[in-house]
Design a protein around this nucleic acid. Structure first.
Lengths: 327, 327
DNA sequence: ACCGATGTTGAAAACGTTTTCATCGCCGCT
DNA sequence: AGCGGCGATGAAAACGTTTTCAACATCGGT
């Protein structure tokens, strides 16, 4: 039925070894190479990647495990990772965990069975804390989130600085009652909160924080509740793009004017944040660069398995818009 | 080094065939089954999927080929496809073509080499028109876009009706000079345009259309140019979410009030379309349903290879917002 | 002219599974 | 008691490649 390397070899009058060498990079004389290439075209041969992977023990495949591809941050990072991967001749297997540790474990096991050459992973804190060094059969590069220090390569935003920058900016604009709305499952939210609290302390202000599951619905519900309370904040720092959207929705339904009644500042410079009235002040993450750096770290690790663990920390860019105009 | 099925067999005191049967669904006595399962746990065995795929000739893998995962429509559809696939025990290989026929061909070849069980594909017209029936080694389900009728299963929006509905709605609101901004590479844009033109004709109005590459930058540039011309339209029908964002940006930079100077209506009910001022009138596509239906068609096709070709046509939902308020 | 080095080629083993096929034991039936 | 059938099991083949290894030819140096 399907044409295999034996058929090509027969058609070209050579051995399968020679065909394999033509396909790969082995030494073959020009004459035979031409014959084989002609035979490949004539037969319409397509190599069987499963067989190739089995024998060569190189799967040329990486896993990409994120919380939810619909989060625009992960969408953009994924696209950058995929571009870099395909350019290097690697396949990508994409998995969505929905921040569920069980699914994270499930997909990590899948990656072992696939014998992937490496994995790029944005883990929940629950999983990240239990991640041991050499326990998986492949190197892991963490993105957006970190685990215990020194165990895995990773690329993250300077979250502490970014959280602090938003607070500094709001204080400069005259805000004093500054609330913080953070996701509950990631080290990233924790770090942004740490930066937020440190900056507030530096200014002699008191923190007021709430934690929610990292999706827009939960954020909107929590923010709406919060904004209806008597001691509600007059400014809000929000730890990612989904939550920011939820917070804006809550402000709208609560009939609070932004920035008049409530200043708003968050993360992720998504296209809609400057179309919305007033534009939203955010810290922009270098999403494409994060994806590229992750692939770069992975390649380096594969080349030099024993090189010390590296963490790439990228700076965010504060984009000031109307949502933090001086009240 | 790595533990294989032979090691498990040795540890359990059985043959590799028995281990394989325990892992799969072969007939094994309870006693041996327990022994083998214990041995699997004890050895930490992980099956090698490459070997399994090679021998069993079932890759349990599908390809998902879209233009750009960053287009929120494809993001949402992909997520639905992946959920359905993983639930059925299938892996997904995701590819972005950027509407480039060469990359489409490249990825289709890759899918052949992967020996995928099927592919879900949103092709450009260039590729779709050349797609022959049995020429690839796997069934193809088209999404969002169609090829020559009768060749491939597919699931699409009722684009003609949706395009007409937007025009009807605008006419009802009093618009007469209604322009159309459409993507240039997909059958979907073509159909939406057909619906737009048919509806205009029905109302005795003249069409004015422009075609652009389907990305926000191109749309913004073209719309800005158009809106600066003397005979500019007073309403715009835009054929997808990316273009709609570009058109809105152009209206903003041209200092045209929406809907006062320019009414705006488009496709894809993305979260930002109701946050923006005024809310945008759109036809909402049932994105999750499209993904699920595509997987369903694929499963049906795999079970009944010779069943007649099916096309699932889903209806859109008109969501009326401020951007088409009566001028 | 001989020898070693170098480079090209093919036969056959190997990769880790699943599947085929034959064997064995057991049961129920005549 | 003998026999047919059936379910469980293992030995070995098979999946389609890459890789090893040995054989062979060619060539430059003595």
């Amino acid at each position: 039925m399907s044409v295999g390397i034996r058929d090509v070899a027969r058609a070209a009058g050579v051995s399968t070894a020679t065909v394999s060498r033509v396909l790969g990079k082995g030494p073959v004389s020009e004459a035979l190479r031409a014959q084989v290439e002609a035979a490949v075209r004539a037969t319409g041969y397509r190599p069987n990647l499963s067989a190739r992977r089995l024998r060569s023990r190189e799967t040329q495949t990486i896993g990409l495990i994120v919380a939810d591809i619909r989060n625009p941050f992960f969408t953009a990072v994924s696209r950058a990772v995929e571009d870099a991967a395909y350019a290097a001749g690697l396949r990508v297997i994409l998995c969505n965990t929905d921040e569920d540790p069980e699914r994270e474990a499930l997909y990590l096991r899948l990656m072992e069975e696939e014998r992937v050459t490496g994995v790029i992973f944005a883990p929940t804190t629950a999983t990240a804390d239990g991640l041991r060094a050499g326990s998986l059969g492949f190197p892991v590069v963490l993105i957006d989130r970190t685990g215990p220090p020194g165990l895995h390569d990773g690329v993250v935003l300077d979250n502490v600085a970014a959280g602090a920058a938003l607070v500094d900016h709001l204080v400069e604009r005259g805000a004093t009652r500054i609330g913080g709305l953070f996701g509950s499952t990631s080290s990233t939210a924790r770090e942004r909160r740490a930066g937020y609290e440190a900056a507030l302390a530096r200014h002699g202000l008191a923190p007021m924080t709430r934690a929610v599951l990292p999706n827009a619905q939960a954020a909107e519900a929590e923010a709406a509740r919060w904004l209806a309370e008597p001691g509600r904040p007059e400014a809000l720092v929000v730890s990612n793009g989904l939550l920011l959207m939820g917070a804006l929705r809550a402000a709208r339904t609560s009939r609070l004017a932004v920035p008049g009644d409530l200043a708003l500042a968050g993360f992720d410079n998504e296209p809609w944040t400057d179309l919305v009235e007033p534009g939203l002040t955010v810290v922009e993450q270098p999403v494409a660069e994060i994806g590229r750096q992750a692939m770069h770290l992975l390649f380096d690790r594969l080349e030099h398995p024993d090189q010390p663990v590296r963490r790439v920390v990228l700076g965010g860019r504060l984009v000031v818009r109307g949502s933090t105009r001086r009240g």
